[in-house]
Design a protein around this nucleic acid. Structure first.
Lengths: 342, 342
DNA sequence: TTGTAAGCGTTATCAT
DNA sequence: ATGATAACGCTTACAA
């Protein structure tokens, strides 16, 4: 029996014919079962089953003027930090019948224009931002009305978006404080770019922890890097070249911490014996490197999930949950930190 | 001037009114400019510009019975190996006006059912498989007619799909041969699951390289793991427990190689002095670990791009390019391999 | 060359 | 409780 009766997907008309009712009734029976009689309901349900009917989204979406698709803007899809957030986002979206498009900002090819077009052409109902900037020119949002948006992981006060985030300041504070408890006095910081709000908070945490410990903050002990391995290495070099190099370093990301670790080793330093290093994010790399990295773990899956829930709330017109969600994070102590022996 | 004239996106009707023509003419002027007079064309173009018109995909798609959206099935979105493939896929798709949905198979939540539903409900026009299996029960594809598909990275001969891949056998052969050239005679293999065609080829490459070198293949030197760090470690343990443990190991993936590396270190072995290790994939981790891993590099971005091009060809009804595409890969020699000193 | 009208698959309004 | 009908935005015969 090779021939297929039904080459194309079943439509509502098919169900209607099979059940001897109108398409309107089919729609009601399936959407608002309480609005049809018991008998027709089961008649329709049976017919739908028989022909293998599933509502075709394009017709429905056109009528409802929605796409049931969301866009998540990712600064760099190849950065492992974002993978698990994305998974949280997608699973949660799927649970609520939404599809998710990934907007990768790292490459030029995904032009800014593309994203705004997705909005104008009604291909997305909402956006989830994992970076701190809108993925198109400022000012555009004044001309166009933007769809519901939520920000996760980063901050952009001027956008006034619901946000899912950790307490970066406290996390950094605790990390640096841990180094101080280990007896370190000269503690450096390898920070991310100034323009990232994230980094501002983490730097403040660093500063406050030092102050709290009665240590004077020396700007020379603060090096900047752009979240790459190489930047971490050269920032570390910069710190080690100081007359009194730090005995411990707090980094704004694991990748930079790994770069710092690598350079320290190249210079013949033993980690953690001569130098303690703390990273941030707890990407899987940190378990496997040598020594394994002490770092701050963020609940990445939960960040994705909560952000999506916030977005779904907006789409459903519910009062925006609570504005924002603060999630817990945790200092994971591994082998890259030790008591100060200098 | 805060009030917005146009709260909703401009439709073709708006353009038609502005240009004093019918919507049909607008459609023609924009789609088939040669079918309208010079004057009306510019009139329409101007009007479209004025109202900021972009075709709304839902209307168009409904009419054309397509979604301009593709689905890429990823075995595990958190496996860094796939990230860059996905980037190649997305950029190429965007260049051709297609959107890409990511189907992550790793978690249960993304039920198999979901994927087949995307097909039935016409939400996707085609699929790109990064694993060797269809993401739903066998047999289903006999009842439903599946959309155009392309496979990348893996193999499934029975599906008879156009495929983008490297020559796994030769790559493995060269890697193992390199170990032999370094003087190693007892060469182990940490292989992936038997049911992955990929692993069959890599194992064959291992076997053929040994034979070619006149080395008898000892099945005890072949350990299996499921592509996780832990599996790599326990496979390594198994090999080291042999009466005559190998002096070099070829691994089917970097992650397993890192597991092996970690265990070897825990047992007090020096890599590469006492043991050489080769991985597969060249994920970014391999540059940063200690020692950096010798591995086989795959052109991941190109794999994604070529696969997408193949899929687009099918969608355009062009004769499927060439059936399949074979891409080059390369042995990257780093610090985890050295001359046999035993 | 251009306009009219039908249709894609749904849902919503209005009768019945 | 149900059915006819119009509508969402776009494309395309067919007519003019």
């Amino acid at each position: 029996m090779k021939c297929k009766k039904q080459v194309v997907a079943a439509t509502m008309k098919d169900v209607a014919q099979k059940a001897n009712v109108s398409t309107a009734t089919v729609s009601r029976a399936l959407m608002n079962p309480e609005k049809v009689s018991q008998s027709t309901r089961s008649k329709v349900e049976q017919a739908a089953l028989d022909v293998g009917y599933l509502p075709q989204s394009m017709g429905r979406n056109l009528k409802r003027n929605e796409s049931r698709t969301l866009l998540v803007i990712v600064p760099d899809i190849c950065d492992p930090f974002f993978s698990e957030i994305i998974r949280g986002v997608e699973i949660t979206a799927a649970e609520h019948g939404y599809l998710v498009l990934i907007g990768d900002c790292a490459h030029q090819n995904q032009q800014e224009k593309t994203f705004i077009d997705l909005i104008i052409t009604k291909q997305i109902d909402g956006m989830l931002l994992l970076g701190s900037r809108l993925p198109f020119d400022d000012g555009v949002e004044e001309q166009r009305n933007l769809p519901p948006m939520v920000m996760a992981n980063e901050f952009a006060p001027e956008l006034e978006l619901p946000t899912v985030h950790i307490d970066n300041l406290t996390a950094a504070f605790n990390a640096v404080n841990y180094l101080h408890e280990l007896g370190h006095q000269r503690i450096g910081c390898i920070a991310g770019p100034e323009e990232m709000p994230l980094c501002y908070y983490r730097l403040q945490g660093y500063v406050q922890a030092l102050r709290r410990s009665g240590i004077t903050v020396d700007p020379h002990y603060i090096a900047r890097g752009n979240f790459t391995f190489e930047a971490g290495a050269s920032a570390m070099a910069q710190l080690l070249d100081l007359p009194q190099p730090p005995t411990a370093v707090f980094c704004h990301s694991d990748i930079m911490a790994l770069g710092a670790l690598s350079l320290a080793k190249r210079r013949g330093l033993k980690v953690p014996d001569n130098l303690s290093i703390i990273g941030f994010d707890n990407i899987s790399l940190t378990e496997f490197c040598d020594p394994p990295l002490t770092t701050v773990s963020q609940p990445r899956f939960a960040i994705g999930r909560e952000a999506m829930l916030l977005l779904l709330d907006q789409l459903n017109g519910q009062s925006v949950r609570s504005g924002s969600r603060l999630l817990d994070c945790e200092l994971i102590v591994r082998g890259s930190t030790a008591k100060n022996k200098s």
